[in-house]
């Protein structure tokens, strides 16, 4: 593995990224590697949730955490689909039929985070990076989409309980999520005309 740093010179104020090279492959920018790590972390979080929901997990499943790192080159292909499809099948097989585990909420968050990481990685060549505004935009979108999971979980929990009454904890979680969503989706106030 070798590292290279950009040369200095005049030009536009575009950020330059350090790059890594794995063997003879292309150069990967650190943001791209960070996205692969985020994908691996998402897979780990999903498997943790699955272990908690199922009450145990074969250790061989933990090796799947490495898949997003190993398949770094294939973020824009069908490999992430096969990977996350496999994890969903694993959830379907390991959790008891007819059950509803609250651990499905963090698993859903991990799933959408892993999807977003792979999708964002595929928008840029390996050596490209992501400036702060792009990362913030994607983070807001991901959080907004992820808010659907606790909402559906609350609804499913209410339906399973035979009524739609929610407890105080549900109100707190719901209002907190709403406040978080409003905070993340806020926009700059319009500039006053002089």
């Amino acid at each position: 593995m070798s590292a290279a740093s950009p040369r200095s010179g005049r030009g536009p104020d575009a950020p330059t990224w350090r790059t890594l090279r794995f063997g003879r492959g292309p150069r990967w920018s650190l943001p791209q590697v960070a996205l692969a790590l985020a994908g691996a972390a998402s897979a780990g979080a999903f498997l943790l949730s699955l272990q908690a929901a199922a009450g145990g997990l074969d250790p061989i499943w933990w090796s799947l955490v490495l898949v997003p790192l190993v398949t770094l080159t294939y973020a824009g292909s069908g490999v992430p689909l096969a990977f996350w499809g496999l994890l969903l099948v694993g959830w379907f097989l390991h959790t008891p039929a007819g059950s509803f585990s609250p651990w499905s909420v963090p698993a859903a968050l991990a799933l959408v985070a892993g999807h977003a990481a792979a999708a964002l990685s595929a928008t840029t060549p390996p050596a490209g990076g992501f400036p702060g505004p792009v990362l913030r935009t994607w983070a807001r979108r991901t959080v907004l989409a992820a808010l659907a999971a606790p909402a559906v979980a609350l609804l499913a929990g209410a339906l399973r309980g035979g009524g739609l009454e929610a407890g105080p904890a549900a109100y707190v979680i719901g209002l907190g999520g709403l406040a978080l969503g409003v905070f993340l989706l806020r926009t700059e106030s319009p500039v006053q005309a002089e």
Binding site: H115, A145, A148, A156
Partner: peptide, 16 residues
């Protein structure tokens, strides 16, 4: 499969 937890897992992706 009458699995509401799978519905929870699918919800963010439906939004996406």
């Amino acid at each position: 499969g009458r699995r509401p937890d799978l519905l929870v897992l699918a919800a963010p992706l439906v939004v996406v």
